[in-house]
Amino acid sequence: MGKIVISSNVTLDGVVRDPDGEEGFERGGWFHQFVGGKDLEDWVARETEEALAAAALLLGGRTSEWFAARMLSRDGADVRVSPEWANRVKSIPKYVVSSTLEDPQWSNATVLNGDVVKEISELKRKVDGEILVYGSYQLVPTLLEQDLVDELRLVVFPVVLGIGQRVFDETSDKKALNLVSTRKIGDGLVFYTYEFEKN
């Protein structure tokens, strides 16, 4: 049985929008502004360990295109991550949720373009292990609303933006979680792991 894990970098006030500053958001670029040295080294180590332990990736169409454009054009040479992480992301089975995408560009990728809830429920039944969700902030609210998420992992950056899309912008009701662990990453980041309570 698969376990869906949302893994995200967020600001202290929960903003996930434009961490690298490439979207043109006026307060974007916070990832590079508030991480460096030991923070970055430990962040890369955590990110790599997580990817190596995962069984699959679940991505929204835009997030899949974003990763593919950067990783496939540079042979995975993203300066923020290790070659080991990049190679794993390129080789791991990927499931891309999109009603318009025809060519996911990746090898080892399957497009899910039907009933999202049904297809992801089936995916959880057939995959054995963790199914990581990176980015995908149009898909994430659906996963949360339908109680398909099992675990939430947040790396919190020491900055408050005040505006911008948050990981929990759209929920119709309260969502109860249990804190599993918390630890410091480098000198300024904090990593939280939560499990969702199931009814």
Rank of each mutant, 00 (worst) to 15 (best):
G2C: 10
K3D: 15
V5N: 10
I6R: 01
T11D: 01
L12Y: 11
D13R: 06
D13K: 05
D13S: 06
G14W: 02
G14S: 03
V15N: 13
V16A: 01
R17D: 14
R17N: 12
D18V: 09
D18Q: 10
D20T: 12
G21M: 08
G24R: 15
E26I: 10
G28K: 00
G29R: 07
W30T: 01
V35Q: 05
G36M: 00
G37P: 06
K38T: 06
L40S: 03
E41S: 06
E41Q: 07
A45R: 14
R46K: 15
R46N: 13
T48P: 02
E49S: 09
E49D: 13
E49N: 10
E49W: 04
A51M: 12
A54L: 02
A56W: 01
L57T: 11
L57H: 05
L58R: 07
L58C: 09
G61M: 00
R62G: 13
W66D: 14
A69I: 11
R70T: 05
R70F: 14
M71E: 03
L72P: 04
R74H: 14
D78W: 15
V79H: 15
R80T: 08
S82Q: 05
P83Y: 05
P83G: 04
W85G: 03
A86I: 09
V89W: 01
K90A: 08
K94W: 10
V96N: 00
V96T: 10
W106F: 07
W106Q: 03
S107L: 05
A109E: 09
T110I: 14
L112Q: 01
G114K: 06
V116K: 11
K118H: 14
E119P: 08
I120E: 04
V127F: 15
D128G: 13
E130Q: 03
V133P: 08
V133E: 04
Y134W: 09
G135A: 14
G135E: 09
Q138R: 10
Q138T: 12
T142K: 13
T142I: 15
T142R: 14
L143C: 06
V149K: 06
L152C: 02
R153M: 12
V156H: 06
V156K: 13
V159D: 15
L161G: 08
L161A: 12
R166H: 03
R166A: 09
V167Q: 15
F168A: 11
E170S: 14
K174N: 11
K174F: 10
K175G: 05
A176L: 12
L179T: 12
L179C: 04
R183F: 05
G186N: 06
G188I: 01
G188T: 05
L189Q: 00
F191D: 01
F191Y: 10
F191H: 08
F191K: 11
T193L: 04
Y194V: 06
E195F: 07
E195M: 11
F196R: 10
F196P: 04
N199A: 07
